[in-house]
Design a protein around this nucleic acid. Structure first.
Lengths: 340, 340
DNA sequence: TTTAGCAGTCATAATACCTGAGTGCTAAGA
DNA sequence: TCTTAGCACTCAGGTATTATGACTGCTAAA
């Protein structure tokens, strides 16, 4: 793979990405530092096609990068995109940690990224694997109901309603609160189910029943908690992409966006840091010609969630991945500020 | 407007609604109790067209109801749709009040309705004008923070974090809790701001500061609470409607769905009970040929929110409005059960 | 090794043509 | 007076035909 071929491949990718139309030999000769005639470019193109890096939609058309062509481009030819001052400022401004809520910040990050890139974006919620209980408290609401207030190690506060089966005195309620805090403090939330028998030992009937109810509620919540949602933004941007000019494609993609579970597997499969998946590598049923760029975002250096951008294989890989990187970075910083 | 003309108009509307193609004279003669030849039907059609109730897309096409045609149909000709057992069961089943949360129930109602009708649906959150406080309780989280638990008259439970400026004893905290409950019980949430001075009287500095903070939090929440969201479901159903086979139309409608404010004005403008708006009556910029059927839903006989269906002017008015009515009814019943 | 030139290919657009569905009108029949 | 058969007319939508022009691959000369 000599220098000029690389140059031509890069030219084809960049030209095709920006114009969305097959690139002809004439089209790039003269530009991109190619001081050769179209005929020469054609010869090189023929070679690149033989290597499987570009292809022809039909005989009398220009060339289009193949998926391996994009892959080669991303791996070896892509130049680093430099953010404009304006873009940097926008990110700094929008990722302001004063946005008081985690959910809100995630939504913001997604919207910002989709605004910057003009592609749909996905943001998964931070998964705190080492999240533990810190304090559990029961508060009476009325004769038959109590509120269970749960403090978690990451500062999150949750509360749930619990039904009281019979009359319970205030002192008894406090005793149960203390017992719960004592037994649950420091244990990871996903192991809550195992603590029941231990806690039941030596309890009277009423308290035992309450405890059982409490633990059922907590266990259920943890299961629900695992099904954290993926935030989506900018879905309508796909209308701008000529590859989705077909109604059925748009429809199936939009339907896909409503499928939380699929979104999660799509976005969470990546390794740490930036990951670029092109076309077939995405492996989505019914939806082809799609690329996904994802980045984990970190809290205290630990990756806790993923943020990603979704576009046609013909996407601005360089620009988009830089944007993504910066937004993921900003998101992580803001999250830390938010929590401590 | 004689009997046969009405019969023919009804036939045209029904036929066009189900087939989405201009209705010819031959098409309805013989059916719909019309024992006359196509030629006779044609004569009547000419009359109906002169009245502005039907129109011709082009010379050699059949007839299509005009907007006034639909209006006439809805006002005078529409037959009551009878729900199938299956449909009634589905509504009963899905509107189960065990769905423990208001938001969840609203989402359910929207999804159910869109499933039943195959149209997108909108549900506004219940606006409790006469919502009052029932109980307010402070619970210590740690030295510097407390949780404020607020019970509202409609059964809703909210909680907020409050910062404690200095050390506060448990007894003092309980005293504040009792004071808050005593002073706020029964007063409407939107008048909370007026109670500050009254409560401050005779308080020591620390407690006064806490109280001020509490009331600030409550007041802020009430302002936020006013910006309730509209739940949307089944948006992708519009892809099934031939009137939206055009990409631009789909796009602008989907964009509209993301515009919370516009949705609210669209859905909330109706009077009590069922309201049917047809075409121009909807008065939406950029989006034509749209009808909206809305119904208020009630808690204890008072309308507190709106649920609506959105479809092409060529929509199944009878069937849809009946479905809507039943779901709104079920929603109201479930909400009451949920709250008391 | 590069390049000009030329023949060949094929998608797309434009055009003409055909078909069939549906109407309005007229005149005859009930 | 109302109804209906029949006929001429209209027009959207489909199909076949024909340009057009944007590219390429190949050849042969520089």
């Amino acid at each position: 793979m000599d220098d000029r071929k690389q140059q031509i491949l890069r030219a084809i990718v960049q030209e095709y990405v920006s114009r969305a139309e097959p690139v002809s030999s004439k089209n790039i000769s003269g530009k991109y530092g190619l001081d050769v005639s179209p005929a020469t470019v054609r010869n090189e193109m023929a070679a690149l096609e033989k290597m499987g890096l570009i292809e022809q939609p039909h005989t009398s058309a220009g060339r289009v990068p193949s998926e391996s062509g994009y892959r080669y481009y991303v791996d070896y030819l892509m130049e680093k995109y430099r953010l404009a001052m304006q873009e940097e400022n926008l990110i700094r401004e929008q990722m302001d940690p004063r946005a008081a809520e985690v959910d809100r910040l995630l939504t913001r990050a997604g919207e910002l990224l989709s605004q910057l890139t003009s592609y749909p974006t996905l943001v998964s919620e931070p998964q705190m694997r080492d999240r533990t209980y810190k304090q559990v408290k029961m508060v009476r609401l009325d004769e038959s109901r109590a509120l269970l207030v749960v403090l978690l190690s990451d500062g999150d506060i949750r509360n749930y309603q619990v039904n009281l089966v019979g009359p319970v005195e205030d002192g008894e309620m406090e005793r149960i609160s203390n017992l719960l805090t004592e037994k649950l403090k420091g244990i990871p939330v996903n192991t809550v189910e195992g603590t029941l028998t231990e806690m039941m030992a030596g309890q009277n009937v009423v308290s035992a029943e309450i405890l059982e109810d409490v633990l059922k509620v907590l266990a259920e919540e943890m299961r629900d908690g695992e099904t954290s949602t993926v935030h989506i933004a900018g879905t309508l941007n796909i209308f701008n992409q000529p590859e989705f000019k077909d109604m059925e494609k748009i429809r199936s993609l939009l339907a896909f966006f409503e499928h939380q579970k699929a979104l999660k597997t799509l976005i969470d499969s990546g390794q740490e840091g930036i990951s670029i998946k092109i076309g077939e590598e995405v492996a989505l049923e019914n939806i082809a010609e799609l690329s996904v760029i994802t980045s984990t975002y970190c809290i205290n250096g630990k990756p806790v969630g993923t943020i990603g951008v979704l576009g046609p294989t013909r996407m601005t890989y360089s620009r988009t991945s830089t944007m993504l990187e910066k937004v993921a970075e900003g998101l992580g910083i803001s999250l830390i500020r938010l929590m401590y």
